[in-house]
Amino acid sequence: MGTNIIKVDKNFFRYISNIQLKLISVFIAFTLICMILGFFFGSFDISIKKFVHGNLSQLEKEILYQIRMPRVLLSAFVGAALGLAGACLQGLFRNPLADPGLIGVSAGAALGAVLSIVIFSNLLEHHFLGIYLLPISSVTGALFVILILYSLSKGFIYDGVTYMLLIGIAINALASVGIGILTFVSDDAQLRGLTFWMMGSFANAQWNLVIPSIFLILISIIWIIPQSRKIDIIQIGELEASRLGINVIKLKFIVIMSSAIMVGVSVSISGMIGFIGLVIPHLVRLIGGVNHNYLLIGSAFLGSSLLVLSDILSRITIQPAELPVGLVTSAIGAPFFLWLVLRIKKS
């Protein structure tokens, strides 16, 4: 009897309907279309016809391969990371209003980034490792917050979710104090860098930063997707899930660690991009259902496509200048969020 070892998530595709599979293919197609649009449109349009015929000018090639492609790829992966992290955390905390910002991870990452902008601003430009300094210190900030969460909630024990949210609020407050002080002591140039970073932008995407970021995000995605069914089951309660044989503590560890990595990387490279993590999972649920096998993948692709679109918008609305992409996502996301809250209240 003890020999038939049973894994709950063995039947991945059993818990996803045919309609949902079709929806996911639509999301994927939509993402690809958005990315292609992103490659060719901007303050400088590149002709798709010329690209297909292979007779782009040197300048156009330069723009396409060195500026547009890394930028679009980065925004696609950051969108996927934020959407997915939002969906996972909402599932784990069993709270439709949870978001990476809520448990303080984004704030930790932001504090790390701000710290590197203000304190190490000389190194940022001159040292050969300079461009990695901000991402590293930002991911460190995110991991540091996770470490605090982990030790204060005694290793993510059962029913510590409310507790963890409260700790998150405290961490958020502390981080904003830190950011406030650093902003206060910064000089004009640093302040300008800070402000732009905080509003979020993909304008500085370069291949040497994009590739490691994509790599980290991809690893987190691969780590977390197989946990989908377990996140479903945890909806009936942590204790109940553990009685069904699920190692809830391990599940929490995986979800929180991978979300922290995804959010830390995203924040470091593109600043605070609001509302993707909160709004995308709701949109995906509205379209096709609540089970996480569908929701996680769907949120990744829809987050990806919508962030690429937002980035295109940010590039073309006030040409030749650029709108920070964080403004665009918040401008679209906030009203949607409000509608969502009102809808929840009604039901």
Partner: peptide, 28 residues
Amino acid sequence: ENKSHRRSVLSQSQNINFDFTVRDIVEM
């Protein structure tokens, strides 16, 4: 896992915040 093969438990249950159907819950 071994425990889950030997006993099942019904206890005071918690709220579910997403639109899972009854079938979904039972299937869990």
